[in-house]
Amino acid sequence: MTSDMGNLTDAAGLSLVADIGGTNTRVALARGPVVDRATVMRHANADHPDLASVLAQYLAQSDIAADQISGICVAAAGPVHDGVAQLTNLDWQIDRATLGRTLGTEKVAVLNDLQAQGHAIGHIDAADLDIIIAQPDAPAHAAKLVVGLGTGFNACPVFDTSAGRFVPPSEAGHVSLPALGGAMADLTGAMMRDFGFASVEEVLSGRGISYLHRVLHGQMAEPAEIMASLAQGEAKASQTAAAFVQIMGTVVGDLALAHLPFGGIYLVGGVTRAFGPYLDRFGFADHLRAKGRFAGFMDRFGVFVVRDDYAALTGCASHLAKL
């Protein structure tokens, strides 16, 4: 959420938040739970050996000294264990203790990127939420689910408890792809041949779009090329997109049954936003509900596409403000 924070260099409680993806890292300044979007900078990871280099460049460009930062929270696209994150699609390791020493602060948090998205729920403007399935009435403390499709795939539940919000980490992208029928019946066999394991992320991700297109049509194409052809109504791209949405609906439906997010399902990430306009056309809701005798039960879960590209930064700021 945008806020006129005035002269940030004079602000008490100034914090640094970062969203580390497989390709880019975005860094911003925040005060309390509010991110100043005017301070967001995007850095290409390929131009830096590690996160410390990114942060040093950001502070230099912002004309802010490290000792002006009272806390830092980073969201990393990879598993986090005991304050250490290992990026899945980037050879970086983020260590909470090292990060604290680098900036001279003890208020440090390292989150999985989906955890950060979970902490952002409730702090996102309604204008940045596209309703895919209307949310039924539910108590404020009802569990929620965040599902992210981008460079990779992940999902995590969000629990609001008497002790505060709890967003447990997860690596849901590396579970087995569910069995599929029809034109997709041969997909698992192809993935076993090509990868040795048929995981969700190898299909429901940026690279997954290209892989699915190759399995269906025997030709390689970049995701941007496929999406551009889809916008023009090209038949092969439409078939790829329809299959992608079918699998997406099936997997999200499985996750909904695993976590029972009566407070809503929030779809995030660049790939999600790219497919947002096509979810209704290709029957996302029908595939989500296709659970046999539990089909009616699936109507209890609302689904939203989050169009706020800074949600992970907001989640970092919100989490850090409560430490």
Rank of each mutant, 00 (worst) to 15 (best):
A235H: 12
G218R: 10
D299P: 04
F284T: 05
G253A: 15
P277W: 01
T250P: 15
S199H: 09
F262C: 03
V203N: 06
G270K: 04
Q239W: 03
H213C: 12
L255G: 07
S229W: 13
A312K: 01
F294V: 01
V252N: 06
P261I: 00
L216I: 01
S318R: 10
L257M: 14
A311Q: 10
F304R: 14
G269Q: 13
D299M: 02
E225Q: 14
V305Y: 00
L313N: 06
V252H: 03
M220F: 11
D254N: 14
Y310I: 07
A235W: 07
F304S: 06
A321N: 09
G206H: 12
F297C: 07
A241I: 05
D280E: 15
A290K: 14
P223Q: 11
G206W: 05
L279W: 10
T250C: 13
V268N: 06
D280V: 04
R289C: 11
S205V: 00
R281H: 12
L313K: 07
T272Q: 07
M220Q: 14
M248Y: 15
L313W: 05
Y266M: 13
A231S: 10
I247S: 03
I226N: 04
R289Y: 09
E222A: 05
D308K: 09
R214Y: 04
L267P: 02
M298P: 09
V215N: 00
F275H: 11
A221I: 10
Y266G: 07
F294D: 06
R289Q: 12
